[in-house]
Amino acid sequence: MEATQIKKQSWGEIEGKEVFLYTLTNSVGSELQITNYGGIIVSFKTADKNGNLGEVLLGKDTLDQYKENPSYLNVIAGRYANRICKGQFSLDGVDYQLAVNNGPNSLHGGAKGFDTKVWDVVEEGDQSLKVGYLSPDGEENYPGNLTVEVTYSLSDDNEIIIEYAAQTDKKTIVNLTQHAYFNLKGEGSIEDHVLKLNCNAFTPYDETCIPTGEIRDVKGTPFDFLSPKRIGDEIDSDYEQTQFGIGYDHNLVIDKPLGEFGLIGEAYEATTGRAMLAYTTEPGVQFYTGNWLADDLGRNGEKLIKRQGFCFEAQHYPDSPNKPQFPSTELNPGEKYTQKTVYKFFTK
């Protein structure tokens, strides 16, 4: 097979803007589908240990179905991925109030985040797709005109490479991620997947999923994946944090220097032999086990099940604008926000 190719088809329209579905195929036969609505990764099919191509992402079938996406299936989340306490933060003495859309807090950019936008197609390459969005000053009450570009690439080494860039004309906050839900088996629960994570600490939170500010060692807790362990082994433990999250839905601190590209960890599913390595430049990863997926629909209109997918959402920590001890999410005019995350697939 030739190196990565890209195919484009019309996929409908939203508010008068045409939406496209792009299919990238690499030299090992893996197939990645992306739409410029919400920057959603619609599908990723890759071989199992027997060479059979299969789906490893949760998803939906049509653009109309993605208009109702309460689980944020495979979207670009922004302008601020994850939660901000009570939707409130301050910059240089100016107070901002965001939409409250997740209990008492703001989640994933507010009422209409980046996941609901038709992104511009900036560049179509043989091996990549670049999409862009201008988030105007005051959108969802965030300050500054924020110009964002996200580039998706599919390598012949079976890597999904996601590169982000953003600039602003007024001081603002930025935290972007890709909210992909993985299931290396393609069906059923992900509790049998085995993880090994390069994360030696996590940020515990209160009953509303807002970090307390503590950075806690994973040792002696259900969050210790420093050695390989099934996702399901301690997911329903009586540990306070897994009770708060009804499983895992926490920011883990990646063991690497701030800003450097490094390993998040590995996931493995034994029956298919599929494995995945994840890398990022971000300081944290939201490890989420799809505890609320039963509220959503997947392909063929079928009801998803609790814990049918897991997320490695590479990002800065939740509520960082209100936690000065956390790495900063502030972006000033003249600066450039960049982020790179890679998911590499193989069999063993």
Rank of each mutant, 00 (worst) to 15 (best):
Gln88Pro: 07
Tyr72His: 02
Asn69Arg: 05
Gly78Asn: 02
Lys60Ser: 03
Gly87Ile: 01
Tyr72Lys: 00
Ala81Leu: 05
Asp61Pro: 04
Ser90Met: 14
Lys67Tyr: 15
Lys67Ala: 15
Asn82Tyr: 09
Val94Met: 01
Gln65Gly: 10
Phe89His: 08
Gly87Gln: 04
Asp64Cys: 11
Asn74His: 00
Val94Asn: 07
Gln65Tyr: 14
Phe89Met: 11
Asp61Cys: 04
Lys67Phe: 11
Gly59Thr: 09
Tyr80Gly: 12
Ser90Thr: 12
Leu58Phe: 00
Thr62His: 08
Asn82Met: 10
Cys85Glu: 11
Tyr80Val: 06
Ile76Thr: 15
Asn69Gly: 07
Gln65Glu: 08
Asn74Ser: 03
Asp61Ala: 11
Asp92His: 09
Phe89Val: 10
Lys86Val: 14
Pro70Tyr: 01
Leu58Pro: 00
Ala81Met: 07
Asp92Gln: 04
Leu58Gln: 00
Val75Ile: 04
Ala81Glu: 04
Leu73Val: 01
Ala81Ile: 06
Arg79Thr: 10
Gly87Lys: 08
Phe89Gln: 11
Phe89Asp: 05
Tyr72Gln: 08
Asp92Glu: 10
Asn69Thr: 07
Gly93Phe: 01
Pro70Glu: 00
Val75Glu: 12
Leu91Glu: 02
Asp92Ser: 08
Ile76Arg: 15
Lys67Asp: 15
Cys85Phe: 13
Val94Pro: 06
Gly78Asp: 14
Phe89Thr: 07
Tyr80Ser: 08
Arg83Thr: 03
Leu91His: 06
Leu73Phe: 12
Gly93Arg: 05
Gln65Val: 14
Asn69Phe: 06
Leu58Cys: 01
Leu58Asp: 01
Leu58Asn: 01
Gln88Ile: 14
Lys67Leu: 15
Asp61Leu: 05
Ile84Thr: 08
Asn74Asp: 07
Leu73Asn: 03
Leu73Lys: 01
Lys60Asp: 09
Asn69Asp: 10
Asn69Leu: 12
Lys60Asn: 08
Gly87Asn: 02
Asn74Gln: 03
Pro70Asn: 04
Glu68Leu: 14
Ser71Glu: 10
Leu63Ala: 01
Tyr66Gly: 04
Asn74Tyr: 00
Leu91Pro: 02
Asp64Glu: 14
Tyr66Thr: 09
Tyr72Ile: 04
Pro70Leu: 01
Cys85Ser: 13
Ile84Pro: 02
Lys86Tyr: 15
Gly59Gln: 10
Asp64Leu: 14
Tyr66Trp: 13
Pro70Ala: 02
Gly93Met: 02
Leu73Glu: 06
Ser90Val: 12
